[in-house]
Design a protein around this nucleic acid. Sequence first.
RNA 1: UGUCCGGUGGUGUAACGGUAGCACAAGGCCCUUUGGAGGCUUUUGUCAUGGUUCGAAUCCAUGCCGGACAGCCA
Length: 615
Amino acid sequence: MPSDFIRDIVAADLAAGKYKQIHTRFPPEPNGYLHIGHAKSICLNFGIAREFAGICNLRMDDTNPTKEDVEYVDSITEDVNWLIRGWADDRLGMKLKGKTPESRQVNGKQDSYLPPVLDPSANAGQASSLPPSPNANAAGGRQDACSTLEPFYASDYFGPVYEYALQLVKKGLAYVCDLSPEDTDKYRGAPDRPGQDSPWRNRPIDENLDLFVRMKNGEFPDGARTLRAKIDMASPNIWMRDPVLYRIRHAEHHHTGGAWCIYPMYDFAHCLSDYIEGITHSICTLEFEVHRPLYDWILQNLDLPRPRPHQYEFARLNLSFTVMSKRKLLQLVNEKRVSGWDDPRLPTISGLRRRGVTASALRAFAYNIGITKYNGLTDVAVLEHAIREDLNQSALRRLAVLRPIKVVLTNYPEGKTEELDATNNPEDPNAGTRKIPLSRTLYIEQDDFMENPPPKYFRLRPGGEVRLKYAYIIKCEEVVRDASGKIIELRCVADLDSKSGGPTANRKVKGTVHWVSAAHAIDAEVRLYDRLFTVAEPDATGDFKLHLNPHSLEVVTAKCEPSLKDANPDLRYQFERLAYFALDKDSRTLTGHPRPIFNRIITLKDTWAKEAAKR
RNA sequence: UGUCCGGUGGUGUAACGGUAGCACAAGGCCCUUUGGAGGCUUUUGUCAUGGUUCGAAUCCAUGCCGGACAGCCA
């Protein structure tokens, strides 16, 4: 079980009896696709819900209609579900489709509350030791729940949030300001210089009320007025200098349509959304640290009958050799530097998924990097290690040759084929074995033969011996070239007694090489992905696109063992001695595509490459 | 020259006043029908200076360094 300062706080709060149940939330804005930095946050928020028998709501933080889109809502929902499936999906708080907060009276105070609904079909088959949520059955039957559940939307709270704004106005804690955006800027001052009061700051309450209602009714154009909190223009904290609470935007909203023309700002909507959903621990990234006093101010100054949520901040993920900002990712997508948001080279969750990275690998990565308040740079090698570790356990081993060179076994009978046993996964005895065909003509990897090898090279060379994995030891006797001098064929003699179980099976040969029978091989398109950038910090200086890796994608036609024609899109494969692969979605969607398409997820560790690089 | 938050090997993290540990990376060795996996092993660290204490990475002070904040974005 992970441990970090936030979980310490949660545990202490629980021990002190501060809350009956922990309630977190994951609140992305639907203005882009989720990336691995979000995965860290998802694992934190859902991990806490899971470990402390709580709930984590999925919420669209959609208060800015001009930047958001349902495409993003859908991708976010899919990515979150994929990442937590079978792990914390039974802790996922959703709501009934179309449901908005209920208004009620609590201790004589007006309250708005929208409790979560858990999907009763989640984590099916796994006996859960967690206590059932009080709301677990609110949706009724299992089928019902699945079809009628949806994420929370901050925009579903526009009604109550507007009411809360009215409450502040009536208390003299908010006012309508007529300053232009430029003047608002000027009046704000600077970090080391106090701001000035707006000339509209002391507008009478009745006038504020009247104006705010008319703002809502659409009487004023965009930017004409704002609703501002009345706090302190001289505060050393910029966010306390009468922050804007509402702005006018005559824009269609992806979720509320044309219902509103004023929209609450993040700071006003977020704390209230947390409150309305009954969130106990509102976890966000470090840049919101300076907003916390405002978060607390708003909640404190409203008459709220239920316990208030509290905000805690942790350091966002920075990963070497990639970019993480939505703006930059969007730029790569829009400028077609990559094929789309789910390009396998991108650090987006959908990209990683398409590449073949598993959800469990991502979770392991999130666990390994921990949670702190220190803003560092995580080496992408840590991610790569988590992926390899996960795949080593589960991937099916197969033989495939990416860059073939022909080998003829001169002493092997023409037309003969034999079936050899090959291990499906040495890490998992239950994975069993399969048959692979061997015949006189084979392919091996070009890299596995060198005419004049350097020291410590122990693959095939003229006159040298090498083991064909699962098969015979062969000796290279002749190198055949075409007219241009290019090597086109290796003629080898096989030790026909050296097969597993044979008399000379235990002869020590330094190298073992993968191969595929030429007559039986199937072709596959193989997409070899590499890091998208050539430098550790592409956005450190200047234009990050200058550091794009021109070799981040190479496509080859590989020769594969025949069993791979039935490759399963849900499984991962290790092409032995090379890398891990997964079937690309194009294999299914490109109708009539003549052959499977494999994405390289991650190479195997290559000690020889490292050795060779030293020269 | 403002406020807030940080600073532990190359990187990321743990140690909650009591032996500075783990992972990744790097190097070496063993093993190997994957130069994979696995096993063993080495190098490298508490920002600085004072103070409190029997004892400080931890508490206090000062300094130094780094990050965040001046959208009607989130």
